[in-house]
Structures are given as structure tokens and as C-alpha cells.
Write a protein that binds this DNA or RNA. Structure first.
Ligand SMILES: [Mn+2]
Ligand SMILES: [Mn+2]
Ligand SMILES: [Mn+2]
Ligand SMILES: [Mn+2]
Lengths: 235, 235
DNA sequence: TCCATTTTTTAGTCTTGTCTAAATATATTT
DNA sequence: AAATATATTTAGACAAGACTAAAAAATGGA
């Protein structure tokens, strides 16, 4: 092993905790997919998520497995180890903190932050992350309503449901988006749907699940594709 | 040419202005070395600056030359093209803006910012750079007194001399450091030498150029190694 | 159970950026 | 002008991370 010979801006000491940009992205993707793939994330799912080929995924999984960041048995899918989970959460923490920074301090709209945060999340400096967190006032949620892990990796799983699950006449507060794509967020902006606003389901169509909602004294008809991507805290 | 096939977070449009982390670091290094190597930066000088081998430098120079970022003839050293110079200045602009951010907003000391800025300078987002600049109030100098290029790449070459060039009884204001290493900056902190302070040369030793200076009602003996790394604006 | 389809892995190639060792060009002495 | 020393380039190898094509394993009917 010549791990210690690798160049590292922090010197040799922290070597074992440092991962490449690509490794970090895979860890993050596995973390997110583990919600849907409880007993092992499949190679194809990971390839889809990473916008790459299954063979590339297999290669990377082997490397991550070699470093004990994932548990992997051939053809059995992959799961994060404790170390892998911790590394993934650290990257997610940075991603979301930077998103808050971009929106709160640099006049970015919530639909513009993701791709820049994808770059910033890989900056390596414990002090930077800690100070950024403090500078932002230890935010609990990112601009899309997702929880921000603290420096220990702890975060509260938000108590929320999808708007599509609400029944007629139920109300709640819009607290997050499931889809953070530019397209979806721009649709929401255009239709005055924003986090923090109160929603009421005025009508619900059995056939296609489309619903008429009320928001800020405004009525709006939305399809299931929309309501299934909005998180609501019921009141 | 399959430039357009490369993955790029901005899509294909900006391809021709995007360079790899390594390419950017080489461009920056050449830019800095051009001050001392007016008629071409030598391979060895570049290898020394980049902490790598001469053969690796030759390889990279060929790639940069292929992309018209440098002008290169075998054995003749290398010079930045206009495009290469512009790219280098853009990276330096980002580096210095981030250094200001770290010191002004995130409680970093001026001896801690460099290695983090080395990472942040490669983040690609025009909006991010522009907004960071605005957020910081369009600073003219970084924490080490170096000029920050504006969005057009223009910067004022500061009117300053080295403290070592001052004669007995001359005074000035300390406006920058030539060496930004942690070690040097910590020495300065320890001895209460900071940018903005007034200096007076009280004595100068002909033999070794060491000098006795006065700063904030304090007298201090410094060697030539120190005085040759402090920039002074004479008053 | 056996066949067909899908999923996953392997084998071999490519690019970027690095390295060592060897060859060649330039510079400095004598 | 040689001879020597130094600087630079070439040749060949390697690692990370991607790809394509082909092989092998798992899965889901009939
Ligand atoms: Mn995001
Ligand atoms: Mn987000
Ligand atoms: Mn710096
Ligand atoms: Mn600086």
C-alpha cells in the first residue's frame, strides 16, 4: 500500500478520511438510493443515478469496497458501511450548507444553486464547513426544505407527507420539494408556490389525482406530478 | 475533435473556456513565473513551482499549446497566450476573492486561507464569482495585499517597494507580503507586524542588511529575509 | 425445468496526468 | 572546438475513471 505516498494538501495524517470527487459522488448517490433499495442498491439504479454505465459502476463499487466504504457481494447490490455513510452525510451537509449560502448571501434563486453546490460540496476543510455553518446561523433546512446534518452527522428526519396524499379539505404548510430540478422549481415560482405557504386541498379528482389547491388566497389546479413532489406538514 | 462530447455541467456552449483543475494550476504558475522569466518560463522552473517532474511539465505544456493557451517552441520555454493569460487572471481573481471571504466572513486568519482558496479557485460559475465580489464590496486587495482583478481582468499593479530597499530613517506603510507561507505570516503575527501599520527604519546594518524598525511604538530587529518579503508604500 | 430476457460482471481500450529511465539538445568550461 | 554538465524531451509505464463489447449470472415465465 502506498496510500501514504499520495499527495495530499493536509499532509499524510488525514489520508484515510479523504476521498476523490468521484468516490464522494458515488457514496452520496448510494446514500440517496438506499431509501428506495433497502436491501442493496442495484448496479443499474446506481448507473442511472450517476449518469454512467453499469460497467463503470461495478469498477467503482470494487474500489469503494476495497476501502471498506461499502459492503458488496457480487450480484447482490451494494450498501454503505458506517464509514461510507458518515462520508456521504458529510458531503450532503456541505452541499446543503452551500445552497443556503448561495440563496441567503449571494442572491441565487433556489433553482440555480444545485449545480454550483455540486462543486462546492467537495471542498476539503473542516474549518471551512464549521465556520460556514456558524456564519449562516446553523440552518436546519436547505432552500429545498431538506434537513442539514450537524457536525456530528445527526439530522432530524422531517415529519412530512406528500401533498398528493392529502385528502379533500385537508390543509398544511408547504415545507419542501422532492424534485429539485430547475424545471420544477421554475414551475413553482411561476405559480407562486413557495416553502412556508399554507395549502388547502379544495378538490381532488379521483380519475387522475389532479387537485385544486388554495394558496395565499389563490386557487390553482395542479396535476399529480406536481402534488407528488411537494412535501407538506399537516396542521 | 470530440470536444463537444465531453460532459460539462454548463452544457456544450462554454466548452472552449473551461479548463481542468490541473490546466488552471499550470496557467496560474506560468503567469506568476513570467514576472521573473520575461522571455519564456523554463520547464524546470515550472516543475519546481508545480512540485512535479520536468517530464510531466513537458507533457502538460504540449497539451496547453495544443489548446492555444501558451506559445511553445521546444527548448525555448513557454509564454502565455492572450487566452491563457485571461484564464490565469480569472483563476487568480477567484483565489483572492475567496481569501477575502474566508478572512472577512469566516474568521480565518491570513495564514490559513491559502490552501482552501487553492481549492475554491477552481469552482466554475460566473454568477458565483460576480456575486461573491459584490457581497464582499468589490475588494481591491486580498488579505496579503495582492491586487484582485475585476471581472474584466483588470487590476492595478500596486505602487510599492520592499522594506529591504528602504534606507535609514525612511518611513512607509506596510501594504503587502511577498511570501504568503504560513510560517512567514505566523512570524509576522507573533511580532505584531500587520498590513496598514506604519514602519520606520531606525537602523540598518551594512554587513547583513538586518534592520531595526519601529512599528506601533514598538522597536524590532529583523533580518533581510524578513524585510525582503514585506511590501511598503512609502509616505 | 428450461428458455429467454435482464442484470451484472469481465476483458480490453481510452484519456488525463503523473512517474522513471533514457536520449537528445543546450550551455558552460577548458 | 571539444568535453562536460545541465536542461529538456521522449519512451514506456501506471492509476483513476470512464467506455464498448462480450461473457456469465440471475430472474421470470411457459
Ligand atoms: Mn442540491
Ligand atoms: Mn437542496
Ligand atoms: Mn493564496
Ligand atoms: Mn493571497
Amino acid at each position: 500500500m502506498d496510500l501514504l505516498n499520495k499527495k495530499c494538501i493536509f499532509g499524510a495524517i488525514k489520508m484515510y478520511f479523504m476521498f476523490s470527487l468521484s468516490e464522494e459522488n458515488y457514496l452520496k448517490a448510494i446514500f440517496h438510493l438506499q431509501n428506495s433499495y433497502k436491501n442493496g442498491v442495484s448496479t443499474n439504479a446506481l448507473a442511472e443515478e450517476m449518469q454512467t454505465k453499469a460497467s463503470s459502476v461495478t469498477d467503482m463499487i470494487k474500489r469503494l469496497s476495497e476501502k471498506s466504504l461499502v459492503n458488496y457481494k457480487k450480484y447482490q447490490g451494494v450498501k454503505l458501511s458506517e464509514a461510507g455513510r458518515a462520508a456521504a452525510i458529510e458531503v450532503i451537509r456541505k452541499h446543503r450548507l452551500w445552497e443556503v449560502f448561495l440563496v441567503e448571501k449571494l442572491n441565487f434563486n433556489w433553482d440555480e444553486v444545485h449545480e454550483v453546490a455540486e462543486q462546492l460540496e467537495h471542498i476539503k476543510s473542516e474549518k471551512l464547513t464549521a465556520e460556514l455553518d456558524r456564519f449562516l446561523g446553523f440552518p436546519q433546512r436547505d432552500p429545498h426544505g431538506d434537513p442539514i446534518p450537524d457536525s456530528e452527522g445527526n439530522f432530524s428526519v422531517p415529519n412530512r407527507v406528500l401533498l398528493s396524499e392529502l385528502k379533500m379539505d385537508e390543509t398544511g404548510i408547504c415545507v419542501g420539494v422532492k424534485d429539485s430540478s430547475t424545471e420544477f422549481l421554475q414551475y413553482l415560482d411561476k405559480n407562486n408556490i413557495s416553502l412556508g405557504a399554507t395549502v388547502k386541498v379544495k378538490q381532488k379528482e379521483d380519475f387522475d389525482q389532479s387537485m385544486l389547491i388554495e394558496m395565499n388566497d389563490n386557487e390553482l389546479m395542479i396535476s399529480n406530478q406536481i402534488s407528488a413532489n411537494l412535501y407538506i406538514k399537516t396542521t
